[in-house]
């Protein structure tokens, strides 16, 4: 009898623990309700999404870092050089609209979940938005393309600016994506900027700062810079694979540097995170040695002069080059 009572209590305790970890939306994890997304509620427009992760208040004290970041393609992650925007449209037309079970017959059917194959990295905060934002994004992409076709520079620039209004700004790395292991380290909280220090932060919107356990680690970048197919999606996508190459080809055999060492510190580019477009990065990444000489090659009675060109290349980066 005594044993039976003990067993019942243990079961009740386990039930209470499980109930305590569940949120209103049915997702597990303690502290999820403290995130920016949970506090703000889902964005209904692109402007609301931009405002949710608005980094403009960072400029007041971190103008230099902000200016650096603006030079990086992270600051226009949906637009890119224009190719990214076009590739998202290709994904809609050649991917989603041709996939028989996607539920997308036309761009008007595209929802947030459909875009997450691209947005997982190009706009991770899209997960914190309603489907109306996905539609606004799609409409803006098509408006931009139509304006380009009509050579309407004003309309094209307007659409381009709208696409650039949502991006990988300060708060994506320093808040939303600052913690990968949320059950171990907790969910990133609204009002907290994550970096290398704990303490007060002189900002009305972000009065606290806290250490991100991964800010100086490769996994921070690896969240987006890819290991191969994104298996967590119903329809896996694949874009960047450099983090996979880093883990399995560089870290396991070659060296111990992380992404930040080369792309931010040694390059002295800081938050202007670049790759081959920066001459210094390109030069540091590949040793390119070439020699050439000529001689008369002979095979029996046949004499044919030839030039021999020997090329030796060593990739000094921490991942395969090129990637994509």
């Amino acid at each position: 009898m005594k044993l039976r009572v003990t067993g019942t209590l243990a079961l009740l305790a386990a039930t209470a623990l499980l109930a305590g970890t569940a949120c209103a939306d049915g997702k597990v994890g303690i502290g999820r309700q403290e995130t920016i997304a949970a506090k703000s509620g889902k964005a209904k427009t692109l402007a609301e999404l931009a405002k949710m992760y608005d980094s403009s208040s960072c400029i007041e004290c971190h103008q230099d870092k902000y200016d650096e970041a603006q030079k990086s393609i992270h600051s226009r992650s949906i637009y890119g050089t224009g190719r990214t925007a076009l590739t998202i449209m290709t994904t809609i037309e050649n991917g989603l609209m041709e996939e028989p079970y996607s539920g997308v017959k036309s761009p008007k059917d595209v929802k947030v979940e459909h875009l997450m194959g691209c947005a997982k990295c190009h706009l991770p905060q899209l997960a914190d938005a309603e489907d109306s934002v996905a539609q606004e994004l799609v409409t803006t992409l098509y408006d931009w393309k139509a304006a380009l076709k009509k050579k309407d520079k004003v309309a094209a620039k307007k659409a381009e600016d709208t696409l650039k209004s949502v991006n990988i700004g300060c708060l994506i790395c320093h808040n939303r994506n600052a913690i990968t292991h949320k059950w171990q380290d907790g969910y990133a909280k609204a009002g907290v900027v994550y970096g290398s220090k704990d303490g007060d932060h002189p900002s009305d919107k972000f009065p606290k700062m806290a250490v991100s356990p991964i800010m100086g680690e490769a996994i921070q970048c690896g969240q987006c810079h890819g290991m191969g197919p994104n298996m967590e999606l119903d329809e896996p996508t694949q874009c960047c694979t450099s983090y996979g190459s880093y883990l399995w080809a560089y870290k396991s055999e070659i060296g111990q540097k992380n992404c930040q060492d080369c792309h931010m510190k040694e390059s002295k580019l800081g938050h202007n995170i670049q790759s081959y477009r920066d001459p210094g990065m390109a030069k540091a990444a590949v040793d390119f040695k070439t020699e050439a000489f000529g001689y008369y090659w002979r095979d029996g009675a046949q004499i044919r002069p030839k030039a021999v060109v020997k090329v030796e290349m060593i990739n000094r980066a921490g991942h395969s080059i090129p990637d994509g």
Partner: peptide, 29 residues
Amino acid sequence: RGPYEKSGIIEDTGLPPGKTVNERFDIFY
């Protein structure tokens, strides 16, 4: 082609990290 249909790698023709890659060209005059 395109992120929507790419999954996995058949081969990598790029430069692997830390490995020496040699190319030789014989060009007859």
